[in-house]
């Protein structure tokens, strides 16, 4: 719409920004302000009168923060890697089928994915128990893979589909075998969708709670960071939890800011937007 900006917009903008920013602010206050201004008061101060690093430093000595974070990293990279390993061929293959069939396959994957997480996680953990995958990095990763796979396939398929059809035919006419056409010509052209799929899978795994909680439960030395954080929250350790939450949230904030322009509705809701 042309013309000047309605001043009313700014009121809405400021209110919404405050609403969405406030939880970050609370986390910041708990982590960086001496406890006598936060938990020491009935109504914690809303502004930092004094900044300290001792909450964070002490927490690092008091609880094992690094272990769960490292396990989360391992799990997230396995989930992201496996998503590409399965998702790239699948995205390519599905993109080559007729639109009608490929849309059905994608829709099928997404509908399957609507199964309630807890309902699926419980039997999976029982299977994994007999396969000795319970409480393991690989077990958590294999369970979380289920959550990210449909979206990965969809995003990568979109990338392949947007390539000109002639490209591959020309390479074939020139006598290049399918495998080298794929690796040398097609893959570099879909690197952006592949990267987005990887980042989204990585982030989903990093944040995921339900599967991790059921497959690698409670024991904080065995779990990923969301499960360990849950453990500290229920043990009423707010400072340690805040430190944990802060450290675990910083990488995601960076990722979202850097890749913000790729976070589009039609990517994130998958095949459901035509």
């Amino acid at each position: 719409m042309p013309g000047k900006t309605n001043p009313l917009i700014y009121i809405v903008v400021v209110l919404l920004a405050l609403l969405f920013f406030y939880p970050f602010w609370v986390l910041f206050l708990i982590a960086f302000v001496p406890t006598r201004f936060t938990f020491g008061l009935i109504y914690p101060l809303q502004f930092p009168l004094e900044i300290t690093l001792s909450n964070i430093v002490n927490s690092f000595y008091q609880v094992d923060l690094l272990g769960p974070l490292i396990r989360s990293l391992e799990v997230a990279f396995i989930v992201g890697g496996l998503a590409l390993l399965l998702g790239i061929p699948a995205g390519y293959g599905i993109a080559k089928l007729t639109t009608r069939i490929s849309n059905r396959i994608i829709a099928f994957l997404f509908i399957i994915n609507m199964m309630p997480g807890l309902v699926i996680a419980i039997p999976i953990s029982l299977y994994f128990y007999s396969a000795h995958l319970e409480n393991t990095v690989l077990g958590v990763a294999l369970a979380q893979e289920l959550v990210v796979l449909p979206l990965t396939v969809f995003i990568i398929m979109g990338g392949f589909r947007s390539l000109p059809r002639d490209l591959e035919n020309q390479a074939r006419v020139d006598g290049a075998p399918l495998s080298s056409t794929f690796a040398r010509i097609l893959l570099p052209l879909v690197r952006v969708p592949i990267l987005i799929a990887f980042i989204l899978s990585w982030m989903t795994s990093w944040d995921e709670f339900t599967y991790a909680f059921i497959v690698a439960p409670i024991v904080p030395t065995d779990s990923t960071f969301p499960v360990a954080l849950y453990n500290y929250v229920t043990r009423d350790l707010p400072l340690q939890s805040a430190t944990f939450a802060l450290v675990a949230t910083i990488p995601v904030i960076i990722l979202v800011v850097v890749f913000q322009k790729y976070l589009k509705g039609q990517y994130l809701s998958g095949g459901l937007i035509g």
């Binding site: 954080l229 849950y230 929250v233 939450a245 675990a248 949230t249 904030i253 979202v256």
Partner: peptide, 14 residues
């Protein structure tokens, strides 16, 4: 948009 990346458990804690 940033809260999109926040872990549910972090959000629950806050």
């Amino acid at each position: 948009i940033i809260p999109f990346g926040i872990s549910t458990i972090v959000s629950a804690f806050i």
